[in-house]
Design a protein around this nucleic acid. Structure first.
Lengths: 133, 133
DNA sequence: CGGAGAATGATAACCATTATCAATATCAAC
DNA sequence: GTTGATATTGATAATGGTTATCATTCTCCG
């Protein structure tokens, strides 16, 4: 049996109150600054438990896992390779296509992750400026 | 200037001769068994250099990076959550849709990675059998 | 040949995450 | 409320993939 303890509630609240993609470290730090100091292991376990329960969701980046609210439903991500910023987008057409592919292969799809890498608008502007110096 | 040394050639050859998705460890072991013993750091650096040069390509899984031939061009992957097996598939429709999305967002797309998680046919059959015991 | 730049290999370091374990909290049944 | 079974916590050690360090070796151009 899984318990929704005060520690886990604190994690869940913080994530639900924001639109960020948190990693465990950031979350622990932010909670600490708000008087909710948790052991880092507790944060990791809490995140895993909450994700398992479907209360939060995550994306697996190259270096670390990042967690976000689940109440926005599934979506995909644009990851800026310069600043690391993460934008979100939904596209039903991509999704239905994925399911089609999986079905055709007799593959029982349980989930998916689409990351699009590139340079975000803001970073793109920055490098534009530096060229004009 | 980047050099294509004998060590890197050995890595490249092995990858090009196979259709596997190698991790660094596996590659080093296999090379060792074939009389081409490389330091593990050399393998990592070689893989990075080869990928950089576009001679091989990689996918980033949760735990580790896996490398494969580049001459098949870009494609996406079905990852079995039971046995870890990786199947490949191409779908131009998904691809063009991704580019559309990136363009709409003024996001300069440089690449993408689509992983579809699920249970492969073979694992699916296995669990079917165990039910009938 | 000589020398600059690149690569190698052994190994230490790094860093996100998980395992361990004793202490504590929670909940259900009495 | 007490008890007991089970789950969680937190400090910390351990894990595992990957990168950094650095002395040595290789490669290639002049």
């Amino acid at each position: 049996m899984v318990r929704l303890t005060v520690q886990r509630q604190a994690i869940l609240d913080l994530i639900n109150r924001s639109n960020q993609h948190w990693d465990a470290e950031e979350l622990a730090r932010c909670l600490g600054e708000n008087g909710e100091q948790l052991g880092i292991a507790t944060v990791y376990r809490g995140l895993a438990a909450l994700e398992n329960a479907g209360l939060i969701q995550s994306i697996q980046l190259a270096d670390k896992k990042r967690y976000e609210r689940a109440d926005k439903g599934h979506h995909d991500h644009l990851v800026c390779i310069k600043c690391g910023d993460i934008e979100e987008f939904c596209d039903n057409k991509i999704e239905s296509r994925q399911q089609q592919v999986a079905q055709d292969r007799l593959f029982q799809m349980t989930g998916h992750q689409l990351l699009i890498f590139g340079v975000c608008q803001s970073c793109s502007n920055d490098s534009q400026e530096s060229k004009n110096l």
